[in-house]
């Protein structure tokens, strides 16, 4: 299962994408510690697999929580390395910005 959590504002759509199939086979779960805002948690999904999710509380505030990492000095484009995506050894985590 691929999950897309995100928001929309005047400049477009932004999403965090988590590929559950890639995430479930990885045992590192480094994203949880890597995120300075505590956006991620490991939870059992509806099909009994343990995967990273964006926590319920964070889903409503992604715009705000992710802005310190992604927004500094105008953001960075695809080359910009975010703590969470850099920490994920499975390549399961992507940001659309």
């Amino acid at each position: 299962m691929i999950a897309n959590y995100g928001y929309e504002d005047g400049s477009g759509f932004y999403y965090i994408t988590i590929d559950g199939d890639l995430c479930a086979v990885c045992s590192h779960r480094r994203c949880v510690e890597a995120c300075p805002q505590g956006v991620y948690a490991i939870e059992m999904d509806d099909y009994d697999e343990f995967v990273a999710v964006v926590t319920e509380a964070a889903r409503k505030r992604l715009r705000e929580l992710c802005s310190p990492c992604k927004g500094q000095n105008g953001g960075g484009g695809p080359q910009h390395r975010l703590p969470c995506t850099s920490a994920c050894p499975a390549g399961a985590l992507r940001h659309s910005w």
Binding site: M1, N4, Y5, G6, Y7, D46, R59, K60
Partner: peptide, 9 residues
């Protein structure tokens, strides 16, 4: 579910 997308509230 294979894939889903959700927006902020």
């Amino acid at each position: 579910v294979l894939n889903f997308i959700m927006n902020d509230k």
